[in-house]
Design a protein around this nucleic acid. Structure first.
Lengths: 126, 126, 126, 126
DNA sequence: GTGGTCTAGACCACG
DNA sequence: GTGGTCTAGACCACG
C-alpha cells in the first residue's frame, strides 16, 4: 500500500505519513483498522525501521494512528478533524506556496481551482 | 521588501525566491525593475551574500530575473509563463500535499476552494 | 576519475560537471552506478565540499545524476536525451564560437569536421 | 554592425571580439578596412569605452586588427592564419565542450557534423 | 554515513 | 560598482 520514491526530494518518512493519510481519507483505512508493524513495513518497503518509526510517531502526534502496546498499531478511533488555528495556518502556508507556483506559471483562478477540485475528488471515498 | 522567517523550516534562499515571485505576481515588481544588489539585500536582511546569490541564481534559472553584467539584477522582460509539463507536474505535487492536509482536517471541497480563491486574489494585482 | 586543471579559466565545478558527463558518455559510468560522495571527491581532489556539491546539484538539475537520501549519488536511470529547443540552441551557441575560432585560424570545412569527428569518436564507448 | 546581448553570460568584450572576427570571416571587413574608433563604437552601442578598448586589445593581440596612431584602427593587412599549436589546442578545447554537450543530448555524429557544416557555411563569404 | 544550508570572508572578472 | 567562485568550516535533517 505504500510506494516510495527514493529519488524524491521529499523525505521518506513524510512520504509514508502522506500515504497513510491518503488511505485514511480515501476510506481504504478505517478507524480501528490495523496497519503493519514498524518492522514489517520496513521490511516490505526495504528501508530502515527507524524511518518507519519516525513516520508512525508523526502520525500518532497528529492523532491519525494509535499504538496499543503488545497489540499493534491502528487507525485512530476518531480522526481528529477539529480545524485548530495552528494546523489551519500550516495548511494555508502549504497552499500559499502551491498557489503561488501556479500563478507564476500564468494559471487563471479557474485553472487553479480546477486542479484543486480534481485533487479533492481524487482523495474522496469512492 | 523581503521579510525572513528564521524559524521557518523553509531555507532562507527559498524564502527569498518565493517573495520575489510574490512581488512580481502582485505587480509590485514589473519587467525591467531593478532589484537590490546581492550585497545590499544581504546587508538589509542581515544574511550572508552567498545565500542571496543562491536565491538570485535560482530566480534566474526560472527566468524571473536577469542579471546584466556590472549593472545589477532586473525583473525579466518577459516572465516565462509557458505551462510546461514538468513545472505543471511539480505544482500539482505541491498542491496535492496542500489539499491532502486540508482534507485530513476535515475541510469540505468548498472550504478548500474558498481558501484557494482567497489566496489567488491576495496574489493578484490590486 | 576527475582531474582538475586549476589554471583553467573554467570554474572547478564546471570541470567536474564536464568530466562526469564525459564518463557517462564514454560508458565508464552507467545508469545506477554510484559516484563518490561529496566529501570523498572533495578530499580526493583537494577542494572544498561546497564546490563538489555545486557540481552535483548542477548535474542533478540536468538529470545526469540522482541522489538518494542517505545513500549517496548515482548516475540517473534514464539519461535525459530529449533534444529540447533550449538545450539545442545552447549547444549551437557553443558550437558557433568553436567553429568561428577554427575558421579564423584558416581551417577548411574538412579540417573542422575532421576534428569534430575525431572528438565525437573519442567520446564514444569503446 | 555590432549587436550586443547584455543579458548573455558571455562578456561584452568577448561578444565584440567574436563579432569582429565574424565580419572578417564573412568578408564584410577586408584587410585595410577601418573600424570605428573605441569612442565611436562605445557611443554606438552604449557601453563604456573601456570595454571596447579591451575587445580591441584582444583583437590586436590576435593580429586581427592594427591600430595606427592618429589614423585609427584597421583590419590587419594579413590575417594571421597560421595554425600554431597553442591556438589549435584552444580551439579544440572549445570544440570538445561543444561536442560533449551535443553527445549528452544524444545527437548522432551525423547530426553534430551537420550542425558544424551549417555553421561553417553560414560563416563563409557569400 | 549522506547531501543541503549557511556563515564570513577572500578573490576575481567585468564594466 | 556588479555578480560568480571558492574556501573552510559549522550545523542540520535524513536514513
Amino acid at each position: 500500500m505504500v510506494v516510495l520514491d527514493l529519488k524524491s526530494n521529499k523525505p521518506i518518512y513524510e512520504q509514508i505519513v502522506e500515504q497513510v493519510k491518503y488511505h485514511v481519507i480515501k476510506g481504504h483505512l478505517k478507524p480501528g483498522d490495523s496497519i503493519p508493524s514498524v518492522r514489517k513495513l520496513a521490511l516490505d518497503i526495504s528501508i530502515t525501521p527507524g524511518t518507519v518509526a519516525k513516520a508512525y510517531q508523526e502520525l500518532e502526534r497528529q492523532n491519525i494512528i494509535e499504538t496499543i502496546r503488545g497489540k499493534g498499531t491502528f487507525i485512530a478511533g476518531t480522526i481528529e478533524m477539529k480545524q485548530d488555528d495552528v494546523r489551519l495556518a500550516e495548511s494555508k502556508k502549504l497552499m500559499r506556496s502551491a498557489v503561488l507556483e501556479c500563478k507564476v506559471m500564468g494559471m487563471t483562478e479557474e485553472q487553479v481551482t480546477g486542479i484543486v477540485k480534481e485533487l479533492y475528488k481524487e482523495m474522496s471515498v469512492c
